[in-house]
Amino acid sequence: MDLASDIKTLEERFAGKDLVGLRQLSSEAAIEAFLKNDSSFVELSVIAYSCSKLLEKQYIVNSPEWNSFKESLLRLLAQSRVSFNEGNFERGKALLHNSMMLVESLSTSIGRFVNSLISKARLKIGADMYARGASLGVAASFSGSDKKDLNEYIGSTKMLDKYVTLSVKQRLQNAKEAV
C-alpha cells in the first residue's frame, strides 16, 4: 500500500458509493498505519470509514449539502494524492487532514450520530491495533483516540478472552503474598 494509490482507491470507492470497499480500505489502512508507524494511514482509514457511514444514511446523501460536500471532498483528496505523487508530503498530509475535517464538519452539522464519526472511526482503528499486539497506550496514541474511551470500547468486545497468562487462583495468591 502507498498513500497516493490508496487515496486514489478512496476517491473511486467514495464516488462509486462502494460501502463495502470503503470499509475494507479503512481496515487495510489501519493495519498499514500500525506496520509503518505512519499516522497519515490513520487519517485515510478514518476518512474511508466515515464516508462509508455517511453513504449509509439516505437523509445525508439526499440533503442539500451533499453534492457540494462530495465535490469538495473529492477535490481535496485529488489534491492530496497529487501532492504525495510529487513528493510534497507535508502538503499531502495537510490536505488529507483537511479532508478529514470536512467529513467531521458535515457529520456534526447534519448527522444524527450519537458520537463524532471521526472519534468512532479512531476507536475502531485503536481496537484493531490493540488486537494486533499494540498496548493500550500505543493503540490510543496512534489512533488518536482517548485511552478511557478505547479501554471501554475494547471492554465491550470479546477480544479480552485471548490474553490469559496465569489462573485467577495464582494471581490472587501472588497478590496475597505481597501483603
Binding site: L136, L150, N151, E152, I154, G155, S156, K158, L160, D161, K162, Y163, V164, S167, V168, K169
Partner: peptide, 13 residues
Amino acid sequence: KSGCSISSLELDQ
C-alpha cells in the same frame, strides 16, 4: 466493561 483485560473464563473462575 471498563477495559480490564480479564477473560470471560476468568470471570467465571
